Simulated assay, not measured.
Amino acid sequence: MDLKPYANYLRAGSAMIAGLAIGLLATVLSLNAGYGFNSLRAGPWTSWPHIGGADIDPYARAVISRSGEAPLGRDQGLAFIARTDSDGAPLDGACDYRIVDPLPAARYWTMTLASPDGRLVANPTERYGYSSVDILRKEGGAFDIDIAREARPGNWLSPGQAQRFVVMLRLYDTPLDIDSTPDPNSFPKIVKLGCA
Rank of each mutant, 00 (worst) to 15 (best):
M1P: 00
L3T: 12
Y6D: 00
A15S: 06
M16R: 02
A18W: 04
A21I: 14
T27H: 13
L31A: 05
N32S: 13
G36D: 09
F37H: 07
N38D: 15
A42E: 10
A42P: 06
G43F: 12
G52Q: 12
G52S: 09
G53K: 08
A54N: 14
A54S: 14
D55M: 09
D55C: 01
D57P: 03
Y59W: 15
V63T: 15
V63M: 09
R66I: 00
E69G: 04
R74Q: 11
A79G: 03
F80W: 09
F80N: 03
I81W: 01
I81S: 05
S86R: 07
S86A: 06
D87I: 00
G88L: 02
A89F: 14
P90Q: 05
D92P: 03
P102E: 06
M111G: 04
T112P: 00
T112K: 10
S115Y: 09
R119D: 07
R127F: 00
V133R: 15
V133T: 15
I135F: 11
I147D: 11
I147W: 07
A148K: 05
A148R: 10
R149V: 11
A151P: 14
R152D: 01
G154M: 07
W156G: 07
P159A: 12
G160P: 03
Q163K: 12
L169P: 00
P175D: 09
D177Q: 04
S180L: 08
S180E: 11
P182M: 08
D183M: 02
F187I: 01
K189H: 08
I190K: 10
G194R: 06
C195Q: 06
A196I: 03
